[in-house]
């Protein structure tokens, strides 16, 4: 009986696909199609309300002044969030609290590819 099970197992292993992912597959993608992805700003939609920076759990978003605008005779600074991808925990909360959908969670980008400075 045990021999029979063993034989069955051997035959199954012979004809089935290996469980290890092929090298090309591992090298290709980083984000799975369901993952939360990586936050990227869509500057045209952003109003600079800083709701994302206030709610970021790891304080990875800083509001940078990028220019000035004129509202009713007063000059006000224009702020845009900047992401520190080495502090970000990729939770996607910033995209969810944004009222204007100005933050997109992108899965196709390979921002995080380890690189050397040299």
């Amino acid at each position: 009986m045990t021999r029979l099970t063993m034989l069955k197992e051997v035959l199954k292993s012979l004809f089935s696909k290996p469980s290890t992912e092929p090298l090309a597959e591992v090298e290709k993608g980083v984000f799975s199609p369901y993952s939360r992805g990586c936050p990227v700003l869509i500057p045209e939609k952003c109003t600079g309300c800083s709701l994302c920076a206030m709610n970021c759990p790891s304080n990875a978003i800083t509001m940078k002044i990028v220019g000035e605008k004129n509202v009713g005779g007063k000059t006000l600074p224009v702020r845009r969030p900047e992401f520190n991808y080495f502090k970000c925990i990729y939770c996607g909360l910033c995209a969810q609290v944004c009222q204007f959908n100005a933050i997109e969670m992108r899965r196709d980008l390979v921002i995080l590819r380890p690189r050397s400075k040299c």
Binding site: S32, Y34, S35, R36, G37, I89, Y90, C91, G92, L93
Partner: peptide, 12 residues
């Protein structure tokens, strides 16, 4: 877990 929550470990 990845399919349902978007991450394998920290589900958030």
């Amino acid at each position: 877990l990845d399919l349902l929550t978007g991450n394998r470990v920290h589900k958030s």
